[in-house]
Design a protein around this nucleic acid. Structure first.
Lengths: 197, 197
DNA sequence: GCAATATCCGAGCAATTGCTCGACTTCGCT
DNA sequence: AGCGAAGTCGAGCAATTGCTCGGATATTGC
C-alpha cells in the first residue's frame, strides 16, 4: 500500500528539517555545477550538504527525487517570473528574453547541466510538465507579438532562443549582445514564416 | 613509460579481430540508442557484442575509449560528406543542410545521445576537435553564401541549424518540412545581421 | 524537568562497476 | 603436422553505488 510518495518521502515540520532539505538540494546543485553529473552520488550529496546519508533518505525516497526537487526549484523560479510578465498585459518579447537570460546566467553551469541531464534519463512527468509549461507560456507570449503563426513555428522559435541562451551560458558564444542576438534570431525566423509558400 | 596509447590499445591484425573491434563499437552504439547512457557498462557492451569482457579490454584501454571510437566513426562520416560538398565548388547551403539532416535521421537516437553525452564528461581532445571541424566547415560554407558576416554569427547560425535538426531527430519537432524550416531559420538570422545598427 | 515526537546519524549490505590475469583456442605459416 | 603469434575468454577483485536500519540526539509541549 501507500502507492508511492510523490516526492519528499516525509514532510519536514521543524525549521531545522526544512533547512536540511534545502541544503541537500543545494548540495546536489553545487556538485552538478562543479563536477558534473558523473560525480552526483548520494553519499557525496549528503557529505557536501553536511548531513548523514540516513538523513538524506528520510526526505527523499531515492536519488532521482533529489534531482526532481532541484529541477522544480530552478524551473519554478523562471516559471513564476514568466507568469508575472504574462500578467503584465501585452506581450513583451524583450522582457521575456531578458528573464530567460537572467535565469540562465544566474547559474549557467547548473542550468545547462539540468537541461542535459533530463535527456539522459527522463526525470518523471513533473519535470517534463514544467518544461512544457515554460515552453507553452513562452510561445503564447510570442504568439501575441507575431500574429498568425503556427504553433510548431512558435515552439521552434522558443527552441532557438533557448539554445542560443544556453550556448552563451556554456561559453560557446560571447555574452555581449546576447539579447540582441536572440531577438534577431527569433524575429528572423518568425518574420519569414508567412512570406513563404 | 609508454605514456598512454592514444586509442586502440592494440591494433588488430587479423580480419576476425577487426570485426570484433567493430562489433564492440556497434554494440555500444546500440545500447546508447536503446537504453541510454546509464546502461552503457563495459560488461553490457561485451555481452551485446557477443564477446568476452577480456577481449574488449584487449583493444580499448578503457570504457572511455570505446565512446571516442564511436564518436570518431559517426562524426567522421558526416565530416567527409561535408568535405565532399565543400570540394564541389561553390557553396551549396541546401546540400549542406541536407547532409546534416540525412546524418541525423540515419540514427536519430544515436546522434542525439552522442551530442548530449559529451557535455556530461568531456570526451578528450579528439572528439572535440572533430566537432569543431564540423562547425568550422559548416560556417565556412555558410560564409561564402552570406557575404560579410562575422564569424560569431556564422557559428550561431550553425548552432541554430543543428539544434533544429536535433530537435526533429528527438521527435520534438515534425520532420516534414524540416529542411525548409532550417533554411528559413538560418536565412532569417543571417539576413538580418547586416541590416541592423 | 520530562516524556513524546521529530530529527539525525553512519556502519554496513547487496548489487554493480570498471578492469586484470592466466588459461584456452584459432590462425598463418612452413 | 607442428609451432609461435594473435585472438578469445570469463572467474573474480577492488572499489563504488544506492540504500536500510537500529540507535543516538535534539526539539517541543507540558
Amino acid at each position: 500500500m501507500t502507492p508511492a510518495a510523490p516526492e519528499p518521502k516525509k514532510i519536514p515540520k521543524q525549521a531545522r528539517a526544512i533547512a536540511t532539505c534545502a541544503a541537500i538540494v543545494e548540495a546536489a546543485a553545487r556538485i552538478l555545477e562543479e563536477q558534473g553529473p558523473e560525480a552526483l552520488t548520494t553519499n557525496r550529496i549528503a557529505e557536501r550538504a553536511g548531513v548523514g546519508i540516513g538523513t538524506l533518505y528520510q526526505y527523499f525516497p531515492d536519488k532521482h527525487a533529489i534531482l526532481v526537487s532541484l529541477i522544480r526549484r530552478e524551473r519554478g523560479a523562471l516559471l513564476s517570473e514568466l507568469r508575472g510578465i504574462e500578467a503584465e498585459g501585452d506581450a513583451a518579447l524583450g522582457e521575456m528574453i531578458a528573464a530567460s537570460i537572467r535565469h540562465q546566467f544566474d547559474r549557467p553551469k547548473l542550468a545547462s547541466a539540468l537541461e542535459h541531464i533530463e535527456q539522459a534519463f527522463p526525470l518523471g512527468p513533473e519535470a517534463a510538465a514544467m518544461a512544457e509549461e515554460i515552453a507553452a507560456l513562452s510561445s503564447d507570449l510570442l504568439g501575441r507579438r507575431f500574429a498568425p503563426v503556427e504553433r510548431t513555428d512558435l515552439l521552434t522559435a522558443v527552441l532557438i532562443a533557448r539554445t542560443i541562451v544556453n550556448a552563451a551560458g556554456d561559453g560557446l558564444l560571447p555574452q555581449d549582445g546576447l539579447a540582441e542576438r536572440v531577438e534577431r534570431a527569433v524575429r528572423g525566423y518568425l518574420t519569414n514564416v508567412t512570406s513563404r509558400a
